[in-house]
Design a binder for these strands. Structure first.
Length: 423
RNA sequence: GGAGAGGUGUCUGAGUGGUCGAAAGAGCACGCCUGGAAAGUGUGUAUACGCCAAAAGUGUAUCGAGGGUUCGAAUCCCUCCCUCUCCGCCA
């Protein structure tokens, strides 16, 4: 959520930046500015009347104590008008605030200056392209066939007990999941992130805090009876740990990592691109989150990007880094890097991580502040990234490492899997 | 799920209709004291939104949340949320 005061003071810049995101309703900005003006005017009036009413009430109290009953009664008679006036103004103020709030949550975050203009994934900027694409033999199999061949993942069983998009991992397939989770958590810990284990269901306030609500409720599973949402990512519970918090300056940066399953309804996509592990309703992910001083967030996003790249390098997976263009970026982000691994058997790139700087967009909703050098409260910057999401890592790992004698496990994982081959 | 008790500032905790944004203590910050520290001592110590060019200042709101009664609510009433104790259930 953008700050009203910022919009008020930077109308032109806001419009210019929104255009990079291809925002469709630029007139919303002026509506917000006007609503804000009316809001301030109304509050000013109401405060004035309240001040008079308070002064009168105080005086009545003093008269009562002094025993001057008649004078008190006489004053009482004059205060009736205030009450009605305050009530009217208060109703106006509430409805203005509500209207303002409804509109301001429709504005996406402003993209950083480095974000390229564009509206489709093809217009994302390739920042780096590391690792050579492996040449697989002509009879190389896609991961869903490898998963079946080596009895690692049973998609049909998942359909039976739950539905499509809920795979069952078996044997070495299950162990590989566990190994990757432990490996990612250990690496995050080494990089200074402290681990948290979190609820998988969150309330509405948390969904609002990180920006999933009110916009994207259709993408989350919802338990209506208890008004709880299944988390689409650990970003939601981790970042919301700091909702309504004022941090001391020396508590920054906050670094947390956490493993959780993630649940996404992802309605309405079918075909080869969602085959196998490519797109699931439930998947596992290790997430890294930072809360930082606004001056450092763009350095920190580079660090986080490097951390994620380090994981891919250690796993020996070819990958590239994209800087998302305005149109392909999420609603809440100011800058996003996507990391994609090359799936040799499918001959396409698979997104395995997304690292974003949200600047104050989330912290404004979360009321996540810190006390700055002047001792004043200031919104912190939040960032997060997947480090990493498992399914597509597993997909590329299986595909790229297939050999005639089986699938070779990357060396860094062997201490975790305790086997070197899937065969 | 049933019965009872309770939710006050960073914390403990007073406060049952007016002088209460809120006693007192602790903590924290700064100063004095000290060779240095402790002790002692003094001062300060919530957030948001307005007004003001801004600082200073000042107005309003906030004592779990939302409504109500009243000239006036932390205090009385209603609804909801949460915590604790006991019972029930249970990995």
């Amino acid at each position: 959520m953008l700050q009203v005061s910022y919009i008020r003071d930077n109308r032109e810049k806001v419009l210019e930046r929104l255009a990079v995101k291809n925002f469709k309703q630029p007139n919303l900005v002026d509506e917000i500015i006007q609503l804000d003006e009316r809001r301030r005017l109304t509050q000013n009036q109401m405060d004035g009347v309240s001040a008079q009413a308070n002064a009168a009430a105080k005086q009545i109290g003093e008269l009562m104590r002094a025993g001057k009953k008649e004078e008190a009664e006489a004053l009482k008679a004059t205060t009736g008008a205030f009450k009605g006036e305050v009530q009217t103004l208060n109703e106006q103020l509430s409805s203005l605030e509500e209207e303002l709030n409804q509109k301001i949550v429709l504005l996406p975050n402003l993209p950083h200056i480095s974000v390229p203009q564009g509206s489709t994934p093809e217009e994302n900027e390739v920042v780096s392209d590391n690792g050579s694409k492996p040449q697989l033999p002509a009879n190389a199999l896609p991961h869903w066939e490898l998963a079946a061949k080596y009895n690692l993942i049973d998609f049909e069983l998942g359909v039976k007990i739950t539905g499509a998009g809920f795979p069952v991992y078996k044997g070495k397939g299950a162990k590989l999941q566990r190994a990757l989770i432990s490996f990612f958590l250990d690496e995050a810990e080494k990089a200074g992130y402290s681990e948290v284990m979190l609820p998988l269901l969150v309330n509405e306030a948390s969904g609002f805090g990180t920006g999933q609500l009110p916009d994207k409720e259709g993408q989350m599973y919802y338990i209506g009876e208890d008004k709880l949402y299944l988390i689409p990512t650990a970003e939601v519970p981790i970042t919301n740990l700091y909702r309504d918090v004022i941090l001391k300056a020396d508590e920054l940066p906050v670094r947390n990592c956490g493993y959780t399953p993630c649940f996404r309804r992802e309605a309405g996509s079918y075909g080869a691109h969602v085959r196998g592990l490519n797109r699931l309703h439930q998947f596992d992910k290790v997430e890294i989150v930072q809360v930082v001083h606004p001056d450092s967030s763009y350095d920190v996003i580079e660090q986080m990007s490097e951390h994620v790249q380090g994981l891919l390098q250690k796993l020996g997976l070819p990958y590239r880094v994209l800087r998302l263009c305005g149109g392909d970026m999420g609603f809440t982000a100011a800058l996003t890097y996507d990391m994609e691994t090359w799936s040799a058997a499918q001959q396409r790139w698979l997104e395995v991580s997304s690292v974003s700087n949200f600047e104050t967009f989330q912290s404004n909703r979360l009321k996540l502040r810190f006390r700055n050098a002047e001792g004043k409260t200031q919104l912190a910057h939040t960032l997060n990234g997947s480090a990493l999401a498992l399914p597509r890592i597993v997909a590329t790992l299986l595909e790229n490492n297939q050999t005639e004698k089986g699938i070779k496990i990357p060396e860094v994982l062997v201490p975790y899997t305790k086997f070197e081959w899937i065969d």
